[in-house]
Write a protein that binds this DNA or RNA. Structure first.
Lengths: 226, 226
DNA sequence: GTATTTATGTAACAAATGTTACGAATTAAA
DNA sequence: TTTAATTCGTAACATTTGTTACATAAATAC
């Protein structure tokens, strides 16, 4: 077990734990380490999930496999990553996809009861676990906000207002090409260009080279909320 | 404090706690109860959040207030609900919006440290807290999946495939009007009609009254993944 | 059964966005 | 400075979805 100290030390769950305490934890906690060859099925979609997995070596994916044969990768994890942490405490705790090893893999499995014991006995672990889940929620909230933007104009307004807050100025400096910006917004570059020009013609913004100037902040907000 | 026993008993955090234990918890935990009149600002956007709030009475909203004066309600909470639970453990723990009372309100505030102590001493509370966060993550994941569907056809395919799984039959019985279904999908009813007819003409489905028959499951999946 | 109300299909048109192609402008390299 | 490469604006056309209006079908009420 000590051979994985370095990986576990970097695992988000144990990051706030001091080295001697980590050793103690490793000695006390009830876990099992399983090795998988490449392309092994670690767990099937719909199977009960009552352990978290910490990847000690290798790489895995959670895949959605359709009856048509198509496979979509939902998530990918490597050494030091945890999977299953949001599932074990949920009401219906089943895997949302098939867990597959992409290379020779070693996984440390911790049963839910062991996780609970760990959290109770080691407050840094409890906090880290809560933080892991909380940061995930905040990240998902952000993504939903972005995905909820309907029109190209709304996406541009959202972007500009966020940058205005970040850069603390109506003069926004772009750190990427318009093509890349369009990609991040999930739209086509010529469409982005078209809408930017329209907004300039309407007097909301001006732009030149790597800069966009906000000329009508209020109208940007109103367009965002439409 | 005992006067709020009924509300707290129904609070998701204490639902798995037995009555005598709940009394003990209430006596031991360090908390403060604050009363607010209607339309009072409980916390401002960007303010530090290091307490969770449990609503004992009344109703609050988290609002996004724009400089243009417009207000968007992000979330609403009533007696028994908890707010801030995903924030206190996050890296940057500030309120994402302004917390406002919509009526005369009493809130029980629990500092992060008290929450940690509670979780350590009462495993049912720990589990409930984890479950709260976990269920939220699963719900947000689901919402992202739905919001990621681009075209009307993809939305229909997704819906039909989910119902196929639920109803275990290619004969899908609709439990709502097509107008309501369109609303849930975030599209217009005539547009839904149009696409359903197109899909029928292409041989993917058939429909009559309250039933849709899946005729080409494989093609539905392929359309979903485009 | 009849009358009324609601749901649905459908057509026509409008609006928004994607796609393709190419020239102009800008940036990078020699 | 010149040349090459990349980025961007723009036009034309295609596709998708929204919107409006109205007729028909289905469901509900009496």
């Amino acid at each position: 077990m000590n051979q994985y100290l370095a990986v576990l030390k970097n695992c988000t769950l144990f990051r706030e734990v001091n080295p001697s305490e980590l050793k103690e934890i490793l000695n006390r906690m009830k876990s099992k380490i399983v090795s998988y060859p490449t392309e092994a099925i670690i767990a099937g979609e719909g199977e009960n999930c009552d352990h978290i997995g910490i990847i000690l070596a290798g790489e895995i994916e959670i895949q959605k496999i359709y009856s048509s044969g198509k496979t979509v990768t939902m998530a990918r994890f490597q050494a030091g990553n945890i999977f299953g942490e949001a599932i074990i405490f949920s009401k219906q705790h089943f895997y949302p996809g098939t867990v597959v090893s992409r290379s020779a893999t070693k996984i440390l499995f911790l049963h839910k009861t062991a996780v609970i014991a760990l959290c109770r006995n080691y407050p840094p672990v409890l906090e880290s676990f809560m933080k892991l889940l909380s940061e995930r929620i905040l990240m998902l909230n952000k993504k939903i906000t972005e995905l909820s933007l309907g029109t190209i104009r709304q996406k541009i307004c959202f972007f500009l207002l966020e940058e205005y807050k970040k850069q603390k100025s109506p003069l926004i400096k772009l750190t990427m090409s318009k093509e890349t910006l369009a990609e991040h917004m999930g739209i086509q570059r010529p469409s982005l260009s078209r809408e930017l020009i329209k907004m300039r013609e309407e007097g909301l913004i001006d732009f030149k080279k790597k800069y966009i100037t906000i000329k009508n902040l209020k109208q940007l907000e109103e367009s965002l909320l439409e």
